[in-house]
Design a protein around this nucleic acid. Structure first.
Lengths: 226, 226
DNA sequence: AGTCACACACTTACGTCGTAAGCGTGTCAA
DNA sequence: TTGACACGCTTACGACGTAAGTGTGTGACT
């Protein structure tokens, strides 16, 4: 006698840590990080919430896991490129990734248990700097400025929920309407003359600061070489 | 006949929005932001949780409120100082404030309803830059780099929960012990030769990046003046 | 073939959270 | 005296994360 399971078509693919984490990312991408609950995650996977615990330790484990997956999405150019373009590319890649996963920037800065992809990324950043001639101390400084800026910028930006510049103009107008312009004249001016302008571009804003930092890091590097 | 309330000594000071917000800050300072719940907050104020709603709209209102209070703690030098030292002082003040309130950095970057102190602070930062000769666009760029760095740095740092450098050495040693050093050689090297060194100082690290950014902002300012 | 262990989904239940709804009771103006 | 209002209290509801225990199918051994 054949097993019964074949007939009553229920070929549900087995759960796994990976499937849980991927579903968690999809859920967070769709509804924000606060919509990521064990029950909803179970629902999306057609499983009861408690079944998830067979594959992850607890919710913190899921958060650590998806943060590490996001880190693995960030491109890190191989060792052949010179340090400046390598850093530039990985920073821009990081910003793109954090744009795809708006919930990630706050999480990446607040989790304390780095996963393998996270460690790998950091290690190769430091490696790239060291090979370029940075001392350990200078590499630490460089690492600190760059990453503070990259993740700080991403988080500042993701609070302004619009994406295109037309939306931006509308939003800015709304803010302005309920803003006592005479109390905050400079703020009002900046919103009107800058953020509301049609060409306003966050990517450009990001790269301004990024290049400022990268150029600033070049000087002490040259000094160290002499 | 006198009122009875006089006799049975219960002179409890009346609740108010301000008292609620201050107690919330104390609570968050003591036990972290996740220990700030309506019930615990009520307990500390010797009141039931629901009574708080007579003075604040909801918990988000409390979060917005304490963020604005934290902003009001940040010093902003008056208009007489030159822009660079003004920016330097307010950045260092911000870092000190965020060190006193470790929960604040993540909150300040994620709230979307700025309060009056927040707006005032931002307005006077922009004002200081404009008076120094920055164009609107350049002021926006400067504002973006500085604040991304300031709050990004604060948040990176507050995850490393130790404070003194001796603690830092111990923690670093623990991290290292469970870190496969041969898989992440550069990371291991940096922890050993840098973070574990007794003189390691986060304030110095912060000021390195800060000065790098401030110096970088000087060049385009001079160009704009010609 | 029998059985034994294990992997893994399910059920139930607990304590905590934010907060809606409604009930006192004191104070103060008319 | 009365009536309105300010403001604290009680009860209750539907989330949430997760501890504890119950099935059931599969694959490895005798």
């Amino acid at each position: 006698m054949a097993t019964q399971t074949d007939l009553s078509a229920k070929p549900r693919t087995p759960l796994s840590r990976e499937r849980v984490l991927c579903a968690a990312i999809v859920l967070a991408d769709r509804g924000g990080i606060e919509s990521l609950t064990m029950r909803r995650l179970g629902h999306d996977l057609r499983v009861e919430a408690m079944s998830l615990y067979n594959h992850v330790a607890d919710k913190d484990d899921i958060l650590d896991g998806i943060v590490d997956l996001v880190f693995s999405e960030i491109a890190m150019p191989s060792g052949r490129a010179d340090w400046k373009t390598a850093m530039r590319l990985r920073a821009i890649s990081a910003r793109e990734v954090l744009l795809r996963h708006p919930w990630a920037s706050s999480l990446m800065q607040s989790r304390t248990k780095p996963g393998p992809a996270t460690l790998r990324h950091h290690d190769s950043v430091i490696g790239s700097l060291r090979e370029a001639g940075f001392t350990v101390g200078m590499a630490a400084h460089a690492f600190s400025v760059m990453d503070s800026y990259i993740y700080g910028f991403a988080q500042q930006q993701q609070n302004l929920t619009f994406t295109t510049s037309e939306e931006a103009a509308v939003v800015a107008e709304n803010i302005l309407r309920q803003l006592p312009a005479d109390e905050y004249p400079h703020l009002a001016e900046m919103i009107i003359e800058h953020a509301m302008k049609p060409g306003y571009d966050y990517a450009e804003e990001f790269e301004f600061g990024l290049d400022l930092i990268l150029n600033g890091l070049e000087r002490p590097l040259r000094n160290a070489r002499n």
